[in-house]
């Protein structure tokens, strides 16, 4: 997948999955995001980097925070942005995904931000995108959500730069989570020595340990001594069949409570990609508490998405960019 994501000179063309990208390039994403974050604090609202470029936000699944931050990121970089909510558009009239792509290409845009319910959809778009058009994956099925993983890593790194000493626990619906898959790749790539996953047996993907994680059944054991705990949303919309017992039982076994958090390291970071189910995944007092960086994750998402857009579209050669 590396070949698909990189230009011949090794720079980023498409951002589809963490898997297949190298650590130096992802460090560049984090460092670029850091500079954008500073700019935002200095009240420099708009940068001219993508002036004259057109970004299409193509969302086949509903989204609030991801779509909004991608849109804001593009505007902050002075791009023109078009939002297309495809859930209510042509594909429901029977148009194939490829036809949708071709139609939009004919409008001469430079970058697609794609979210789709099927794993591999962003790869599919990238495989069929013409020269000069980049594709950013804003979440494909259960597969990948690379900007989310980068903003999570960015958030962790800001608080705990000693990534090579951290214990990170990821809790909940791993099976359906593109966020978890991307996080696992990113944390491993940045040398986090211990990644633990905790999930109901029915929500744990088969052979997940081959991705470089330790599996725990018992949240209390997993959180013991943790530096970061990442809670995942139960993706009920993707659940078919008997995967879960009651919400109460789920909360009792896998919910993050004050009592559980006390077993972690002091100042353990509490994260959640949102949207949260309070009282099911996480106790409200923790979500709003001092250790929670959940809102910071959202702010950082803007900087990360600016960085990835700038890197994918930023051309050193003025002739490059349009085929």
């Amino acid at each position: 997948m590396a070949e698909l994501q990189l230009r011949p000179d090794g720079r980023l063309r498409h951002f589809l999955s963490i898997e297949g990208l190298n650590q130096p390039l992802l460090s560049e994403v984090l460092d670029t995001a850091e500079s954008f974050r500073k700019a935002a604090f200095q009240q420099v609202r708009k940068l001219p980097l993508l002036r004259g470029k057109t970004v299409i936000n193509l969302f086949f699944e509903p989204s609030t925070r991801t779509r909004t931050t991608f849109e804001l990121a593009a505007r902050r970089l002075s791009a023109d942005v078009v939002n297309i909510d495809v859930a209510a558009s042509s594909t429901t009239k029977g148009e194939t995904l490829l036809d949708t792509l071709r139609t939009l290409e004919a409008m001469h845009c430079d970058l697609f931000v794609v979210r789709h319910g099927l794993s591999g959809a962003a790869h599919f778009f990238a495989q069929h995108a013409p020269e000069g058009v980049s594709v950013l994956n804003a979440g494909d099925g259960r597969h990948s959500h690379p900007t989310q993983a980068m903003l999570d890593l960015f958030t962790i790194r800001r608080h705990r730069p000693d990534l090579d000493r951290l214990k990170v626990v990821i809790v909940g619906d791993i099976l359906h989570s593109r966020v978890a898959r991307s996080q696992i790749h990113a944390l491993n790539l940045f040398g986090v020595p211990e990644i633990r996953v905790v999930a109901p047996a029915t929500l744990l993907p088969v052979d997940v340990e081959t991705m470089g994680v330790h599996i725990y059944n018992d949240f209390d054991a997993a959180i013991d001594g943790a530096d970061v705990v990442i809670m995942l949303r139960l993706q009920r919309e993707r659940m078919h069949g008997p995967l879960l017992s009651s919400k109460d039982e789920y909360f009792r076994r896998f919910g993050l409570t004050e009592k559980r958090l006390a077993r972690a390291r002091p100042n353990c970071l509490v994260m959640h990609p949102g949207p949260m189910n309070r009282g099911v995944e996480i106790e409200s007092s923790i979500a709003d508490g001092a250790q929670s960086v959940i809102l910071e994750q959202v702010s950082n998402g803007l900087a990360i998405r600016m960085a990835v857009m700038a890197m994918a579209l930023g051309s050193r050669d003025p002739g490059e960019g349009k085929a």
Binding site: E19, S119, G120, D140, G141, R142, H143, S144, R178, R181, P205, V206, D207, V208, T210, M211
Partner: peptide, 8 residues
């Protein structure tokens, strides 16, 4: 493991 990685 491959389906797990690819999210299929």
């Amino acid at each position: 493991p491959i389906a797990t990685r690819l999210g299929l």
